[in-house]
């Protein structure tokens, strides 16, 4: 079955017809040609498809497009202002927190979403004090970024980049 929906991606409004089986990720990649979010597993297991969905990080391969009519999406492409990169992106470049680059847009969006979660005081599995403010130690950063796999093994540099961007 086909359904028409609207999406705003990186500030641009789009109207499109999707199969009810189409994921938000495929709607962007295959229908709209927006390929900044990557597909690594299609099962919510790798984080490559992460975007900011209505302000929060989300894996778009696990979201059906029809369920997100009217959604506001920001991808890694939208986080940069032309040549000017988002501080997280710049820090990843500075620390070489990427190799093949396939996981990278997901890492970028996840990091931006993660910082907002920490700012709002959301605890993680390694947070000792569940009531106070979150201090973003390396351990906290690594834990909170563990939904984003990187087969090239850039984790150490990704943590270094986020650590610096937080400062």
């Amino acid at each position: 079955m086909d359904v028409e929906i609207g999406l705003r991606v990186d500030g641009e409004p789009h109207r499109l017809v999707v199969d009810t089986r189409t994921t938000l990720l495929d709607a962007m990649r295959e229908r709209l040609g927006i390929t900044s979010p990557k597909k690594g597993c299609d099962h919510g297991q790798c984080g490559a498809c992460t975007v900011l969905l209505d302000g929060r990080r989300a894996t778009t391969c696990l979201a059906l497009a029809v369920a997100h009519d009217g959604a506001e999406i920001v991808t890694a492409a939208g986080l940069a202002d032309g040549e000017r990169l988002h501080p997280i992106q710049q820090a990843l470049l500075d620390h070489d927190g990427l190799q093949c680059g396939y996981c990278t847009p997901g890492q970028v969006c996840s990091a931006v979403g993660m910082l907002a979660e920490a700012e709002a005081g959301w605890p993680s599995h390694v947070t000792a004090d569940l009531s106070g403010a979150v201090e973003l130690t390396d351990e906290e950063i690594a834990e909170r970024m563990s939904g984003n796999l990187c087969r090239c093994g850039a984790y150490a540099n990704i943590v270094a980049a986020i650590r610096e961007a937080v400062r």
Binding site: T35, A76, L85, V108
Partner: peptide
């Protein structure tokens, strides 16, 4: 040297194989 293609990769604009799609693909 910083990766020459780094900017394209951190924004997700470096095109990988499956991303060379046309309207009639």
């Amino acid at each position: 040297l910083e990766r020459l293609e780094g900017h394209a990769k951190v924004t997700g604009t470096a095109p990988y194989a499956a991303e060379h799609l046309a309207a009639d693909t």
